[in-house]
């Protein structure tokens, strides 16, 4: 099977990001929080991407920051998908009151902009990675709920699901063995997109100061630290911003490719 160029590019870039994140400790040339050079030095042979507001190597911080960003985004997306798709399938299979209750609760959460909900929750709750992951995961799960319910409603009316019910199968067999395998491809594509949203969300929160706390760092936090340099023509803030954009685009390319291969959601083979 031939991969389209965009998918190949997306896959290799995403792979590169993951590789760097996993082996950050061995790849990064300098420690994360050590001031090794002058303030806002430009790119040089010594500091490939220059130094930041207090003289730390930007490349090293990008590498460590990427680790945190990707880890938190991945963990919260996985949480969002486990929670959202389970409840979505349950609502589709059970129907009636369960469906109404879950759907209206989700509507309620979605009616309020998630950034505001997150800001309120994070300013009340203690600031650590676990809380951050939980908040993002729960908020994102509402979107996953919507999608998985819609996909599952289509599958739940199939005769094979009815046959399973007539056989006397329990709820978990119907959900995990009959519906899940058939809902997987649209959900996998959606996972890529939700992952990007999580990356952007964390970056936003960190930029506002409620995300990742020092001494750890992430890309959004790095933009915040270096944003004042923009006034003086220092490009330090652009490096993490570019990293966020590059990750978002490459994962998006992969998700697009998965989506065009999905026959059930779009009713065809795609492009």
């Amino acid at each position: 099977m031939r991969l389209p160029f965009s998918a190949l590019l997306g896959l290799s870039l995403t792979g590169l990001f993951l590789f760097i994140a996993i082996f950050a400790r061995w790849i990064a040339p300098y420690p994360i929080d050590l001031a090794v050079g002058g303030v806002w030095e430009g790119p040089s042979a010594k500091y490939w991407l220059g130094t930041d507001t207090i003289g730390r190597d930007i490349l090293s911080r990008l590498i460590y920051g990427g680790q945190v960003t990707i880890f938190v985004a991945l963990a919260s997306s996985i949480l969002a998908f486990s929670l959202g798709s389970f409840l979505g399938f349950l609502a589709a299979v059970k129907g009636g009151l369960v469906d109404q209750l879950l759907s209206r609760m989700v509507d309620l959460v979605m009616a309020i902009p998630s950034l505001i909900v997150a800001l309120v929750m994070l300013s009340v709750l203690p600031l650590n990675l676990t809380v951050l992951i939980l908040v993002i995961g729960v908020l994102d799960s509402t979107r996953v709920f919507r999608l998985s319910r819609a996909v599952a409603v289509d599958i739940a009316v199939m005769d094979y699901v009815e046959a399973a019910k007539l056989r006397g199968e329990g709820q978990s067999w119907v959900i995990f063995r009959e519906i899940l395998p058939n809902a997987l491809s649209p959900l996998v594509a959606e996972f890529g997109l939700r992952f990007i949203f999580a990356v952007l969300f964390i970056s936003t929160l960190s930029f506002l100061g409620l995300g990742i706390q020092p001494p750890l760092t992430d890309w959004g936090g790095m933009v915040k630290e270096n944003k004042d340099g923009l006034i003086y023509g220092k490009a330090a803030a652009l490096m993490p911003a570019a990293a966020i954009a590059a990750l978002a685009i490459s994962v998006n390319l992969v998700a697009d490719w998965v989506l065009t291969r999905t026959s059930s959601l779009k009713g065809g083979r795609g492009g």
Binding site: D159, Y160, L166, G168, P181
Partner: peptide, 27 residues
Amino acid sequence: LAGRSKDDLREIQMIYQMADTAMNPRQ
């Protein structure tokens, strides 16, 4: 359906018009 025993369910089976949709395509 909920009030029937496993044997009740076992002894009445059903075959559908559209065999396509009566079988899980991933099994």
